[in-house]
């Protein structure tokens, strides 16, 4: 019986090891190249989450590029440099930005004219990067470091108290 017991331990361990090795190899065979590819593309995108490309944010657009569902010229905030970087990564020719998705603008920053703000919180919900702080019926303000200048907070504002200003230093990622 004791011998039997030891055999059991051995056999189960061996089977478990075998399954582990097979699964380990299977995992590396089956890892989708697209996953890492879309992560690489995502790193090249400007992360404004402005949705000008027609996708909800930069990562979905990166996924779409990786799956060949979108072209690389749909990102105005990235500019020509962004298209060039994407073309370089994907081994595709550099193409001009598609004007359908908006035009290239200098890096912008949203600024709330605080005395006019009525505290409606609409711009807080609209902001894709949570760069606006404030509470209901209290003044809101923009965290300048976080703002990507995506303009998504402009349309919901009922009193049009948000301005976009051009940032002087242009060390934003291209």
């Amino acid at each position: 019986m004791a011998h039997n017991f030891v055999t059991g331990i051995f056999v189960v361990t061996a089977i478990a090891l075998l399954i582990g090795v097979v699964l380990g190899y299977a995992a590396s065979w089956f890892t989708s190249d697209n996953e890492s590819l879309s992560a690489q593309i995502d790193r090249l995108l400007p992360q404004t989450q402005c949705a000008q490309c027609g996708y909800p944010g930069c990562r979905p657009y990166a996924d779409a590029i990786a799956n060949n569902e979108a072209d690389i010229n749909q990102c105005p905030p990235g500019g020509e440099a962004g298209v060039a970087a994407l073309a370089d990564l994907l081994g595709r020719p550099v193409i001009a930005l598609d004007p359908d998705y908006g035009e290239v603008k200098p890096p912008l920053l949203a600024l709330i004219r605080e005395d006019e703000c009525i505290g409606c919180t609409l711009c807080i919900k609209a902001c894709p990067v949570d760069a606006i702080v404030g509470a209901a019926k209290l003044m809101h303000t923009v965290i300048a470091d976080q703002c990507t200048g995506c303009e998504l907070c402009l349309p919901p504002c009922p009193v049009d108290c948000i301005d976009l200003i051009v940032i002087a230093d242009t060390d934003q990622p291209a």
Partner: peptide
């Protein structure tokens, strides 16, 4: 126990396969 082990392994394999 061995069967459960085998089944779990195969399911994991299937999941990897489907995800790919």
């Amino acid at each position: 126990i061995v069967f459960i082990l085998i089944i779990a392994g195969i399911v994991q394999f299937t999941e990897l396969f489907v995800r790919k």
